[in-house]
């Protein structure tokens, strides 16, 4: 999967789940600080990333805890799936 494809899908998920506009979803945007997510939203986002990118239940909790921004999520998914 290319970076563009990953970014596009990540953006779509965030817009849908957090009810934000696409322009707010910048690489440095923090889920909690900038996009208004709470702890339950974060659990749901990780689940959605796992499902969408075919990772099963493979994102370990300590890794998931590091996914605090849009950018860090894209980098993590690139490392797993990118080419």
């Amino acid at each position: 999967m290319t970076r563009e494809e990953i970014e596009k899908k990540v953006k779509e998920i965030i817009v849908k789940k957090l009810g934000v506009t696409e322009s707010e979803v910048t690489p440095t945007a923090s889920y909690v600080e900038d996009l208004g997510a709470d702890s339950l939203d974060q659990v749901e986002l990780v689940m959605e990333f796992e499902d969408t990118f075919g990772l099963g239940e493979k994102i370990p909790e300590e890794e998931a805890a590091k996914l605090t921004t849009v950018g860090s999520t894209v980098e993590f998914l690139m490392a797993k799936l990118g080419k």
Partner: peptide, 10 residues
């Protein structure tokens, strides 16, 4: 059991 919504109980 790990795939249900975190919003289920609320």
């Amino acid at each position: 059991p790990q795939r249900i919504s975190p919003f289920f109980i609320p």
